[in-house]
């Protein structure tokens, strides 16, 4: 309760949560909110500036930009959720086991993490997409894989600390099985860093996925993905700047929302995490 109350006092975090809620509503009810069909094109109406009929104007094929951005919410949030889920599903168990057991497994995992972290920024995702071929699902997988090492590092660090605590020793003295200790005693105590990291990773996932889309490696046209929409916009910037401005604004807002919420969650859950996450 006190965590929620502390979060509620964090005005920026509340703003972030409200933004995310707005995008979530857009994603769920996209077909009902969007004024037009996001795929319906009409070359006669291409690159029109914002008007009463098309609130944010039309793109290079005459499709309604607002409708495409609203439908793009589905794509971007889905990509973010799935790639963070991949990072969680692999990173958390591997990090927990590697921190708890140590030994050769830990050594192996640490080398693997070193290798993955030796790719700066978005390059690892680019290599993965290049192998698998461009596309929405492969881009998600690529971003998810790039997130794994961070989860392993963070969870392993927390487990190393918790492993020496007295309650773990007590559980061990009672004869509890190691895996049960990890599940029942250690992981619940790692929740704070995992929740904070995941919120911030959702922000990164949207940035990275849209970056891949911008390079032409993510969701393929005609899928309304924000980054992919920006990819061609630079060609028309002289005649139709709105095509470049609005999809980017959507990305920035969504990322800002998750960043603000993540920051507030960190302060509310565990202020000591500052500087580590």
């Amino acid at each position: 309760m006190s965590t929620l109350r502390r979060l509620a006092r964090h005005r920026l975090a509340l703003f972030g949560a409200a933004v995310i809620l707005l995008f979530a509503v857009c994603a769920i009810f996209a077909p009902y909110i969007a004024p037009h069909d996001p795929y319906a094109f009409s070359l006669a109406k291409k690159l029109q500036p914002p008007s009463r009929l098309h609130l944010l104007g039309t793109d290079e094929l005459g499709r309604d930009l607002l409708s495409r951005i609203i439908h793009g919410t589905r794509v971007s949030l889905l990509m973010a959720l799935i790639s963070v889920a991949i990072g969680l599903a692999v990173g958390v168990p591997v990090g927990a086991l590697s921190g708890f057991y140590g030994g050769w497994f830990d050594l192996l995992v640490q080398r693997a993490v070193d290798i993955l972290l030796a790719f700066p920024g978005i390059l690892l995702a680019i290599v993965v997409v290049a192998i698998l071929g461009p596309g929405l699902w492969n881009a998600m997988l690529a971003v998810g894989i790039s997130f794994i090492p961070t989860y392993v590092r963070v969870v392993r660090g927390s487990v190393l600390e918790l492993r020496e605590k007295e309650f773990v020793e007590a559980a061990r003295a009672l004869g509890t099985h190691s895996l049960a200790i990890i599940r029942r005693h250690i992981l619940p105590n790692c929740l704070a860093p995992i929740i904070v990291l995941s919120t911030l990773q959702l922000a990164s996932a949207i940035l990275w996925a849209s970056g891949l889309g911008f390079l032409g490696l993510g969701a393929q046209p005609p899928t309304p993905e924000w980054g992919t929409m920006l990819g061609r916009s630079q060609l028309y910037i002289r005649v139709a700047p709105h095509v470049a401005i609005f999809p980017g604004l959507a990305i920035a807002l969504a990322v800002l929302g998750f960043n603000l919420l993540g920051d507030g969650l960190r302060d509310a859950l565990d202020p000591r995490l500052k500087g580590r996450l």
């Binding site: 980054g227 470049a244 920035a252 800002l256």
Partner: peptide, 14 residues
Amino acid sequence: FVGISVPVFWLGIL
């Protein structure tokens, strides 16, 4: 917060 949230390619285009 805006600085870490704005995609760099969009900032470039702007």
